[in-house]
């Protein structure tokens, strides 16, 4: 039984990753594979919906750091939404809000991509 799950949804031109459960050193490789797969297929606009993410450790945060530079080089980005206070606190402790855009709702993150593309 896995305590972490990822659902990928296509919201053209954005791909939404819905994370569920516990993201730690054990489950981070699963997220890494998902990012590798998306990037390989040329998808660089990524919204990570954290609505059902109960827990994150630095191993999980390291995955975002590993891919953000790649997607930005291709004019894409990794943006976050629907983060609980508990998960946000970990992001905040490490200064991640300086580097990533975090939105209350998924739709706002998607619109930010859409607006950037229509410019």
């Amino acid at each position: 039984m896995s305590d972490f799950a990822i659902k990928v949804r296509n919201e053209n031109p954005v791909h939404v990753l819905e994370l569920k459960g516990y993201l730690d050193a054990h489950t981070a490789p699963k997220l890494e594979e998902t990012f590798q797969d998306l990037i390989k297929k040329g998808h660089h606009n990524i919204v990570v919906n954290c609505n059902d993410l109960s827990y994150i450790s630095s191993a999980g945060l390291g995955v975002f750091m590993a891919f953000v530079e790649d997607v930005r080089e291709k004019q894409g980005d990794i943006k976050f939404s629907n983060m609980s206070q508990k998960v946000y606190n970990v992001f905040d402790l490490l200064g991640f809000p300086l580097l990533y855009e975090i939105f209350k709702q998924e739709q706002e993150a998607i619109e930010k991509f859409n607006n950037a593309q229509s410019k």
Binding site: L61, G62, M65, A66, V68, E69, G95, L99
Partner: peptide, 12 residues
């Protein structure tokens, strides 16, 4: 701040 701006992934 410097660490994340240079996209380092470890040391957290």
């Amino acid at each position: 701040k410097e660490h994340i701006r240079s996209y380092k992934r470890g040391g957290f």
